[in-house]
Design a protein around this nucleic acid. Structure first.
Lengths: 340, 340
DNA sequence: TTGAAAGCGATACCAT
DNA sequence: ATGGTATCGCTTTCAA
């Protein structure tokens, strides 16, 4: 094997030059054939030789080299959540990725657990993504957006509850969720309303706006909204339930259906009657809510399809200036069952 | 602005050459300073000028150019699940990413929904990852592994239930879960055991081995194991519950706790008594199981920490030949509560 | 202590 | 119809 200077197990990665050599053509021709370049005619026999050579060597183009030459990438970067954020988001993410790939983007999720917003933005920028779509997992700042744009990102889109300067802001205003829940409770005649807020890190970005909306709705109606921090475990729920009588509440909106289930069980174990003593409403309309007894009232969220979102991204990439700053991508409605 | 040939909103992305020009030094010096190259001494004033220039321009290095020059990347690619696969995996993934980043890897998740195993492998290979860690979301084939290795991946690690030729195989054998559940039921005196299998796509890779293990345990004990396909919705569960008496089962192992909750509710609504008529055991030991009445028995899974896994990856990258082919990363045990 | 220049892999312009 | 070659941004060897 006089050809291989390296250790045999570590044979070099084949390049287009290797393909060219094996096919007996130039690297240019290889490129034309493998990319089906329209502006150039290559004879059928040549095409065939090139393809066969590529196949034989197991040639895979080098994305970095390609994008370096091209001066841009087609990478869309999606920061990933630090916390499981529910089947809704999961489905949305899946659809979005699928749809973006159909539009010929390379979709990559980047976990940024433990990085602050600006560190994360710099790390993302090194990859030169053409677009970044954040659901608000990481605190994107105006500076972060600027870094990304300077690094060539055509579209920085935030679906975060909070507005971020410089980013195109496709809003999913989580305040509406809390507002909807509390308004429902008020309509059912409740006036002293607890609002369960998860203490889990990574959920604040959703929990706080939801509380904010709840507070707003209570205020509007002349009702009381009392924040109730709760961690997602049985003991914490039992503690809260033990304090329940002193709190003097006649209703509670929990962050989502999971927390509702947790609290309902603890309340029922203490003999609190639902909905007579305390009405309970969750959010996200998870299947489990329908399996509880009493059946759980909830806030149902209609989210845009990932396909729609992908089109928005694509439009923003093609023509950054022609996409409106704000969209509404979320509709909420209360679903009454037996717990309110 | 005679300097800027482009449209003003589309000013060029700053390169190290721009930094060099602004600082009045060469590109080499910029590289030395920004990478803290140890083998070269740069005067403090120069370092300062370079850093200031980089800051002012908002310079971010170009990962593609860097890795092209270096001849390798430090990217670890994690294919993402098509289906939400539970808080266990989520936590594991989070830890793994965090730990890998501490070891100076760039971690990227790649969603492959709708790609087959070989397409996916090629797409991943274009990014020239130094390692791929698959949880089995995508059917990795021997060919796929070969493509990745030829493209320079030092470590292709599969945590999949199934063994994949060529890949280092750090096994999380899901069969043990089903085996453990059914063995538990047999110990409790049950002989006719249903095994609920989710029909949701993307879960087969976990569901089938779990069933396989259940079947194996039943056979060993001279019991019956009956597969029961079930989709994750109320109506499907109600249908199954309606057919329950004819099935003649005295116990059921559901794929996981979520499916257990779904089925338990449907059975209870039909007046089936749990555990007297039918014992139920789930898996994954989710919090919700403890909130059900009767409390749900389950299979608890202890998974390796992400930190441990990250070390394994790192070792495999540094010295591909010195990492054993097989590890066990999972321990299971039955947790008895009130449903069995 | 700093700079000049080669080269990583792929592409696209300009010749032939 | 095909090939030669400059180029993208960065690192690193060698020279000064």
């Amino acid at each position: 094997m006089s050809q291989t200077p390296r250790h045999s197990t570590e044979r070099a990665v084949p390049t287009s030059a290797d393909v060219a050599r094996l096919a007996g053509v130039s690297r240019a021709t290889v490129s034309y054939v493998l990319n089906n370049t329209a502006s150039v005619r290559i004879s059928e026999p040549t095409r065939h030789r090139v393809r066969a050579a590529a196949e034989e060597l197991g040639y895979v183009p080098h994305a970095a080299a390609r994008s370096l030459r091209a001066g841009h990438t087609r990478m869309v970067l999606l920061p990933t959540a630090t916390h499981p954020v529910g089947p809704l988001h999961h489905q949305f993410f899946g659809e979005l990725q699928w749809a973006l790939r159909r539009l010929d983007y390379t979709v990559v999720q980047y976990g940024s657990l433990g990085l602050d917003g600006d560190e994360a933005a710099r790390a993302w920028a090194e990859l030169r993504p053409v677009a970044v779509v954040s659901l608000g997992e990481v605190g994107l700042t105006a500076y972060g957006v600027e870094v990304l744009k300077r690094s060539g990102a055509k579209a920085v889109i935030s679906l975060a509850p909070r507005r971020v300067e410089g980013a195109r802001c496709l809003v999913m205003d989580q305040r509406e969720v809390g507002d909807c829940a509390v308004s429902h409770l008020v309509r059912r005649g409740r006036q002293a309303i607890g609002v369960v807020m998860p203490v889990e890190r990574g959920l604040e970005l959703f929990a706080e706006p939801r509380y904010e909306g709840a507070r707003r709705a209570a205020e509007r109606a002349g009702a009381r909204a009392v924040p109730l921090p709760l961690s997602y475990d049985e003991d914490a729920a039992a503690d809260l339930a033990a304090r329940w009588p002193q709190l003097g509440l006649d209703a509670v909106y929990t962050y989502n259906d999971d927390y509702a289930m947790l609290l309902m069980r603890a309340l029922q174990d203490r003999g609190v009657s639902i909905p007579d003593d305390t009405a309970v409403i969750g959010a996200d309309d998870l299947l489990l809510g329908r399996l509880l007894r009493p059946r759980l009232s909830t806030v149902h969220i209609d989210m845009t399809t990932g396909r729609h979102m992908a089109e928005l991204v694509d439009r923003a990439v093609r023509d950054p200036d022609r996409v409106p700053e704000r969209h509404d991508l979320m509709r909420v409605r209360a679903v009454q069952r037996d717990s309110t």
